[in-house]
Nucleic acid binder design. Structure first.
Length: 129
DNA sequence: ATAATGACATGTT
DNA sequence: TAACATGCCATTA
């Protein structure tokens, strides 16, 4: 099964999220150059199981673990996050703005995104500011 | 080509 | 606050 550019992009972005930080599905989509492909991101993470991909650092924009999958249960994601110092409640919620990772312009450009797009992201997608 | 599915996001009730 | 509805996108049937 051929790996699409979209999938490769998801892997690239998620791998850039640092230890102890999180991003939302929609955020990953924005960094990919597809501002509304949040569902596509979730789709990829459900399919892709690779060790070097820190899938547990992706949660929904409400600050909740959104997993419903047997391979990687919500409990496992919570444990992995807690082991990185992220406080996750019994209801699988966390303070997303406290842990959210925001990619800088240099990083976005290094991913080949157009300068104009990078500027737009800086203006319209600033979480927790 | 069309319809359906999902680890989403956002606005409206 | 929570349920519902609508919009989106990649992928599959």
């Amino acid at each position: 099964m051929a790996e699409s550019e979209f999938t490769k992009g998801v892997v690239r972005v998620v791998r850039s999220v640092p230890f102890g930080r999180v991003v939302s599905y929609g955020q990953v989509a924005v960094y990919l150059g597809f501002p509304r492909a949040a569902r596509g991101v979730g789709w990829v993470l459900r399919q892709t199981k690779r060790e070097e991909l820190p899938w547990w650092r992706v949660v929904n924009n409400a600050g909740r673990i959104s997993i419903k999958n047997w391979e990687h249960p919500a409990e496992e994601q919570r444990e992995r996050l807690r082991s990185e110092g992220v406080e996750v409640g019994e209801d699988f919620s966390l303070e997303i703005e406290k842990y959210r990772f925001q990619a800088g312009e240099e990083l976005l450009k290094s991913w080949g995104l157009p300068e104009e797009y990078v500027r737009m992201v800086g203006e319209k997608f600033r979480w927790g500011v």
